[in-house]
Amino acid sequence: MNEFQRRKAKNRVIVVVLLVILVVYFFPIYWMFSTATKSKAEAFSFPPKWIWKPQFNNFRDIFFTGTGGALGRVRGIEVESKPSAFARQFTNSIIVSFISTILATFLGALSGYVFSRMTVRGKDDLLFVILSSRMLPPVVVAIPLVIMCRALGLFDTRGGLIIMYTAFNLAFSVWMMISFIDDIPKEYEEVALVDGYSRFQAFFKFVFPEMRVGMAATAIFNLVMTWNEFTFALLLTGENARTAIPGIAQSLGTAGVNWGQIAAGSFLMVIPVVIFTFLLGDNLVRGFTFGAIKE
């Protein structure tokens, strides 16, 4: 074999390995989607059916009660169609995750800038304190947090969850943004300052654009963490502000298990994160290789 053939063979092996990995990773998603679009009998047939006629009533049923939805807890007898509990939970998830992600990322970027650029008294201690908020396992802080939320009237409100998640993700965001901002030469702002810009103008005009890469990466991490968060979402909410992750889990216990609807709900839960990641994806990849590109 000459060098060229060897390389070609090597490439083929790599492609095969990647394909296998891809199949393994996407199989759960495929399974969710197929279960959600199969009829009950098809979903449970063994060996599994690879070809079926997709139906989408599971997707409809998880959002509306009165059409036989089990995920939306049906109380009493058939009623006219109205949004289910899952619909509310899904909306909650979207509102809470996106708002807290934006807040945490933005605040993290601003504080990261300050920590990176200015002399902050007791900087190292402060950074440690910020990080230490992530060191305790959630269960340990859960009870005090529940009590605090109740006292402040934030229990079972979206606002309460948003504040919680923002505070929680802020630690991560600050640390992540500091390292991104440290990589941006501080001369950019200094040049601007001497040119006649104020600190604020210099920041927004010249540093902020450079930070977008880091912010995209941070935002995706924040969103994934918030979107999939279970413990606090369960403990800090009741009927009203519950998000979809504990919501789906909860529906497992009640009124039998409708696997078709659970699969539909789970599948829907994957979508927003995927869309968000794709939208920011370009930046994300560049974000991870940021250190490598710079000289």
């Binding site: 030469p185 001369e187 950019y188 200094e190 040049v191 601007a192 300052l193 001497v194 040119d195 006649g196 810009y197 104020s198 600190r199 010249f206 654009p209 450079e210």
Partner: peptide
Amino acid sequence: LPPKERDVAFVFQNFSLYPR
């Protein structure tokens, strides 16, 4: 005084320019 009120010009040693 903040830099912008000093009315001085500065050529930096590493000649920073705005990359964008």
